[in-house]
């Protein structure tokens, strides 16, 4: 029992939960309005896309991959839905399903190239990020509406999916995030598919010798992350009421930050959904709380960047035996002196 508690405390997720709690306490002190449930829960509207996408980009990183194209897929999905609905007269819900399909296809295309040609994932998804944001421009050119304005005027029912709140407090987005976290958790930690993802990430060659179709597994993770990006695109379009090509432009870096801060190794094989979910909340709440405390929104990148570097540096230093023993040695020596 005691050992279990010790194990829990030394888990990274526990540290993240503490940080989250600390943030809420500190920001609550600075601005009591922050602690109003409606405000606190409502904050997720600002960063739900980061939360959702990072859940599934975690899958990609665990296979040892990298995904910097998700942001572009958000924009591509958004504008596709807009153009389909506005210019081609497609029912909005059908357009959403087609949007999901576009996201899945985009992810699968990059995933296919990564899995079957062994080009570095970073390079392929870099190409993907250009390609899909470019395609978003192409799609927007099909519309009569000028690109910079974006497409708006969507039906009420579509806009309503992101406006509702349970008891007037908890927004639908929050529920979506919780539901998707459970889904991702189940997929990654409780299914045979999830186990294969881990095995591929730890040692892909050995996984192949075990008869696992590593290529299919690797490819599928990119497809999943593409779909999650599409879903984020739908939610953002509904929330903002406008379909635009550049909706996901600034998402790439926060997504990777959330996944890595959550404890996922960029070398693959390690990571948890709980960690990613908590880390995305930590980042989101940090930004929200700071801006509520009167910090200029343009400055918010600074603490997020610092948080990322410091947390990973601590993790990396503490796993580096030589450095640790050096510090211990130093400590011992100074201790002996006194």
């Amino acid at each position: 029992m005691k050992r279990n508690i010790k194990k829990l405390i030394f888990r990274w997720e526990f540290a993240l939960a503490l940080i989250l709690l600390l943030e809420i306490i500190v920001f609550g002190r600075l601005n009591p309005r922050f602690l109003k449930p409606r405000v606190l829960f409502g904050s997720i509207n600002d960063f739900v896309s980061i939360c959702i996408i990072s859940l599934f980009v975690t899958f990609v990183l665990i296979t040892g991959g990298m995904d910097i194209q998700a942001g572009s897929i958000v924009g591509l999905t958004s504008i596709s839905i807009g153009v389909l609905w506005n210019d081609f007269g497609v029912n909005i819900w059908v357009a959403c399903i087609l949007g999901l399909l576009i996201g899945a296809l985009s992810g699968a295309f990059s995933g296919f190239l990564i899995a079957f040609t062994d080009v570095q994932p970073m390079v392929v998804t870099l190409g993907g990020s250009f390609l899909y944001s470019g395609l978003a421009m192409v799609v927007s050119n099909l519309s009569e509406v000028e690109a910079y304005k974006g497409i708006s005027g969507f039906p009420q029912a579509f806009l309503a999916i992101t406006k509702g709140r349970i008891n007037g407090i908890i927004p639908f987005q929050f529920l979506m995030f919780v539901a998707l976290s459970f889904l991702a958790y189940f997929l990654l930690h409780r299914t045979k598919y999830g186990r294969k993802i881990f095995l591929c990430g730890v040692n892909r060659k050995a996984a192949e010798y075990c008869g696992i179709h590593t290529r299919k597994v690797v490819m599928s993770t990119y497809m999943l992350s593409g779909m999650s990006a599409a879903l984020a695109g739908i939610i953002l379009t509904s929330y903002l009421g406008t379909a635009k090509t550049d909706l996901g432009k600034e998402l790439t870096m926060p997504i990777i930050t959330a996944v890595v801060l959550g404890g996922t190794s960029n070398l693959g094989g390690k990571g948890t959904i709980l960690g990613t979910a908590l880390a995305s909340l930590v980042i989101g709440i940090l930004r929200f709380g700071l801006s509520m405390s009167g910090v200029n929104t343009q400055y918010l990148d600074i603490p997020v960047g610092a948080l990322l570097i410091v947390s990973v540096a601590i993790r990396s230093v503490s796993s580096n035996d030589r450095l640790v023993s050096f510090i211990k040695h130093r400590f011992k020596r100074s201790y002996q002196k006194t």
Binding site: M122, T257, N266, Y299, D301, I302, L308, I309, S316
Partner: peptide
């Protein structure tokens, strides 16, 4: 410090972007 380079430079990128503002 042996921070993976993508993470280190990603973090520095955010910080410097903020500092420009």
């Amino acid at each position: 410090l042996k921070v993976p380079s993508i993470i280190m430079t990603l973090g520095v990128n955010s910080i410097v972007r903020g500092l420009i503002y």
